[in-house]
Simulated assay, not measured.
Amino acid sequence: MNTHLARAVVAVTAAAASVSLAGCGSTEGADAGSGGSAGKEAIKVGLLLPEDQTARYEKFDKPLIEKEIAKFTRNKGQVVYANAKQDAAAQNAQVDDMIARKVNVIIIDAVDAKAIAGAVKKAKDARIPVIAYDRLAEGPIDAYTSFDNEDVGKVQAKALLEALGDKAGSGQIVMMNGSVTDPNAKGFKSGAHFVLDGKVAIGKEYDTKEWKPENANANMTAALSALGKGKIIGVYSANDGMAGGIISALKAAGVSTLPPVTGQDAELAGVQRIVAGEQYMTVYKSYAPEAAAAAEMAVSLAQGEKIDGLINQMVDSPTTQGVPSVLVPGVALTKNNIRSTVIEDGVYTVAEICTDKYKAACDEIGLK
């Protein structure tokens, strides 16, 4: 992913959380059927998320975006929601449905960034602005908000090297990247290689179809067979779901001392594995600023307002140069900072993490 800094402004999270919408009511009362012409009472936001296997979309992204749209429209905006359940063709049809329902703006997290390009163009032809959310969709998108994907990969890789210590030069790791249809996966992979290449031997590397844990499990089983369970000193896993599948494969192979395994998304199961010492780390991404940025840009674009003051970078997609963007940094979460991240931010309670199964492990690290 090629990015260049648009301006040296305030921190990303501050920009994303900003609530200024100067002049938002200037076009109140216009038709609700075309983007860039609606007043606050008329705003209709189409929200299209990619799947429901990863916990984040239904638990965090959807309610957070709905909350922010309500805030920015004084509880008068409407969110029209659909989940594609990992079906790119279904998501294309959902865009058609949003156009037919005359939404003013679409926020879309693409199942397949390339396959969605035609649908994005249809929306643009219907004068409906499109915001790429979390994944950089192709086509004529108007704005983009996500996490700094290359930086996420670097955070994961640095944590893995720290966990390996002196072992980094004496064994091999397995790299379990995400789906090739997800442009974010390319960024994670690039950032990870930037840190890992030349520091540790990569014995096997996989691009995991659809990010599915069962596919990661199968890949890890193959890696164990090819390399030998005693030769794998660590595993780079691009997210928590796959980390779960990887750890299951390691256990099934009889690996008694698990190597450090990375992750991403701070899913509850991932955090619990970290507490238990099965997974080394995850990348905690605060979804609130990402959702706030998407909502604020959506409301502004729906009313024909400029978003220059909201963005902090310009990003190039394969089809569109200089997309106005808000990129949010991620944080390495280990057992040492669970309280100061997901608990303090209200993502999980101690009780949710420290169930009976994990209570002893929680007590051991002072999580009470």
Rank of each mutant, 00 (worst) to 15 (best):
M1P: 11
H4S: 15
L5S: 08
V9H: 07
V10N: 12
V12L: 12
A16G: 15
V19S: 13
V19W: 02
L21H: 13
A22I: 01
G23S: 06
G23F: 03
T27K: 15
T27M: 07
G29T: 07
D31Y: 04
A32T: 07
G33R: 12
S34L: 13
S34C: 10
G36P: 13
S37D: 05
A42D: 14
I43V: 15
L48P: 05
L49Y: 02
E51P: 01
T54Q: 11
A55R: 05
R56D: 01
F60E: 03
F60H: 00
L64R: 02
I65P: 00
K67N: 12
K67W: 09
A70C: 09
A82K: 09
K85V: 00
D87W: 00
Q91E: 13
V95L: 03
V103A: 02
A117S: 09
G118V: 10
K121G: 07
K122G: 00
A123L: 06
K124Q: 13
K124D: 14
D125L: 06
A126Y: 05
V130W: 05
A132T: 07
A132R: 03
D134P: 06
T145G: 07
S146D: 05
S146T: 14
V152D: 04
A157K: 08
L160Q: 02
L161K: 05
E162Y: 11
E162L: 09
A163M: 08
L164C: 11
L164S: 09
L164F: 12
K167L: 15
Q172N: 13
I173T: 13
I173C: 11
M175H: 07
M176L: 14
P183Y: 04
G187C: 09
S190R: 11
G191P: 12
A192N: 10
V195N: 08
L196F: 03
L196Q: 11
D197T: 07
K199D: 02
A201L: 11
I202F: 06
K204M: 15
K204W: 11
E205G: 12
K209F: 03
K209Y: 10
W211H: 06
A216S: 01
A216C: 06
N217P: 13
N219L: 04
M220W: 00
A223G: 10
S225F: 04
G230I: 10
K231P: 11
I233M: 05
V235I: 15
A238V: 12
N239L: 01
D240G: 01
G241W: 02
G245F: 12
I247G: 10
S248V: 03
K251G: 12
A252P: 06
T257F: 07
L258Q: 08
P259Y: 04
D265K: 00
Q272E: 13
Q272S: 04
A276P: 05
M281Q: 14
Y284H: 13
Y284M: 05
Y287G: 10
Y287F: 14
E290V: 10
A291K: 09
A291N: 14
A293N: 02
V299F: 10
V299D: 07
I307T: 01
D308Q: 06
N312G: 11
T319L: 03
T320L: 00
T320D: 01
Q321P: 07
L327N: 14
A332R: 15
L333D: 06
L333N: 05
N337W: 14
N337C: 13
V342E: 08
E344W: 04
E352I: 09
C354R: 06
K357P: 07
Y358I: 03
A360E: 14
A361F: 03
C362H: 04
D363Q: 14
E364K: 15
G366V: 12
L367D: 08
K368E: 06
